[in-house]
Design a protein around this nucleic acid. Structure first.
Lengths: 298, 298
DNA sequence: CATATTATCTGACTTTAGTCAGATAATATG
DNA sequence: CATATTATCTGACTAAAGTCAGATAATATG
């Protein structure tokens, strides 16, 4: 019906008025938008003035004046940067924290309102996650994390859930060769999570043995983040980690019910090999040699 | 992982910077945002000055000055409203149309850019449709349309596609009792489409016979618009149309593979009845009497 | 260590947006 | 038909945002 570009523009129109509504609700606290934005950015942890300026796209003169205004109101205080006395750090005072949480409350109730308008908000939230991931693509970071940490456990839970939906006979972790967490941590291996603005979007584990052979395990990307290259970036991180651990050969197993994964491995230099374990779930096995080169080997 | 409110706020953050980017790219044509917005609104067909002011939320003085500025640039000309000489109508001149299409080109390339960043844009577009429908809920209009028109054909195509996915044995229109289009048009019946900003989001047909009995057919709501009450509004429109045609009894058939529909009928005063036709697809049959009252009868 | 660069600040601006109190002319209403 | 209401316009404002050219002090660099 509508062509893709018109659909994107329809989305832009719908969203613009919503964003405007949030802006005007911020005006309710008797402070111009510019000052409110600076206060909120400081509250969210952006204390470094240069970083603030860059994030909000403001002129240095304007930034300086806005900070002075907030200081006069007693909401922030600034101090020199410990490593470089030219730079300044802005921090919220006690009443600044109060004011910041008032803005947080406005944002939260605005968000609640959006959800309350929907009968079944879960689908809307999934759609919002997808849009946010696509728009914030450049802000997706691959971070090495504890495979027992909160983010990792969330990703693994989603991963197992997806396998049990997609495998014909379901999936039961206890029947699979579940890797020991210590094998996926330094110094034997590593575990990576793709994070976007606090939301974990994917993971991968490098299960090492201390020797020259290691395995890639638990590669998962959230449905809302597929098509953004997150899987490839996770795999690159795992391969780099393997290189640093002097691993020479990487192996992995997967299932033909996951065609996207197979496609990814094929396009990034992996070779299909014979079965190398007796795990009941996988039916495809791949191998790749880790080159000393730092560029991706595909 | 993240609670719903944080997810909405993550979405807001992601989208705000994108919207801001579109705004600043509009500045590239050497005209302040306010004037650009007015020009675009006129280009999109909002010629009536009062309507413009309402749509853009501007003070009458400001509006007047912006129009004067565009007039001085030779982009628009204004003329009195034919029915009311106090009102004014703004129209684009030839060079105004050129300038408008330059803005259109900027919007289009911005939209293309968003899509180009995604490997498989179809899922992203579906997510954007869902968000746009939810945000623009109050702008969804139920319109009576020709069941053979473009919008109706689009909806029916989606409807048949969905049935063939959801029915175990598939769905073949030719095997079903496909209603004649003239039965779903005045004076025998009616056909309604839910429109949101140019995108059809759902449909329903009232198939009349000229007598006191009529049937509800082809109720469909786009997946991106479910949970917004569109189905209920479509059904209300069909019932009102039935009332105006002096229909006394409404019937419909459906299938238990469509639990949302069944739930809707149950909650809006329909009673389950015996099979009343030999169509191979339906396995549930409902009836409702049309009350002379104009309020919904549930 | 002289010089260049950098981060921030200050003062003196301009532009944009928005407000408010009338003025004017057309239309609606009793 | 007198009076009220309405849509637009004008003039005189204010507030907010943004720009630009130095000034100052700290740090980096040859």
């Amino acid at each position: 019906m509508l062509d893709p570009i018109s659909r994107v523009r329809r989305f832009n129109r719908a969203v613009t008025s919503e964003v405007g509504a949030l802006d005007t609700s911020f005006l309710g606290r008797g402070r111009p938008l510019g000052a409110a934005r600076v206060l909120n950015a400081i509250g969210l942890g952006r204390g470094d003035v240069a970083e603030l300026r860059d994030y909000l796209g403001l002129d240095s003169g304007l930034m300086s004046r806005l900070l002075r205004g907030l200081e006069d109101e007693g909401l922030i205080h600034t101090l020199p940067h410990p490593d470089d006395a030219r730079r300044r750090i802005a921090k919220l005072t006690r009443s600044g924290r109060q004011e910041f949480s008032a803005y947080e409350a406005i944002s939260n109730s605005q968000a609640e309102l959006i959800l309350a308008r929907h009968h079944k908000p879960e689908a809307l939230l999934a759609a919002m996650d997808m849009v946010a991931s696509a728009f914030g693509r450049s802000r997706i970071r691959i971070e090495e994390m504890d495979p027992k940490g909160e983010e990792a456990r969330y990703c693994l839970g989603e991963y197992y859930g997806e396998l049990s939906r997609r495998f014909k006979g379901g999936f039961e972790v206890s029947l699979s060769r579940d890797p020991d967490a210590t094998d996926m941590m330094a110094p034997r291996g590593a575990f990576f999570v793709a994070m976007s603005d606090g939301l974990p979007l994917g993971c991968v584990g490098l299960k090492g043995s201390g020797g020259e052979l290691a395995e890639i395990k638990r590669l998962w990307v959230a449905p809302s983040a597929r098509g953004l290259g997150v899987g490839r970036r996770l795999m690159d991180s795992a391969e780099n980690a393997a290189r640093n651990l002097s691993v020479k050969i990487l192996r992995l197993d997967t299932n033909s019910a996951l065609p996207e994964a197979r496609q990814l491995y094929r396009s990034t230099g992996w070779t299909e090999i014979e079965r190398f374990n007796d795990d009941p779930y996988p039916d495809l096995f791949f191998e790749k040699s880790v080159l000393p080169d730092s560029r991706p080997s595909y």
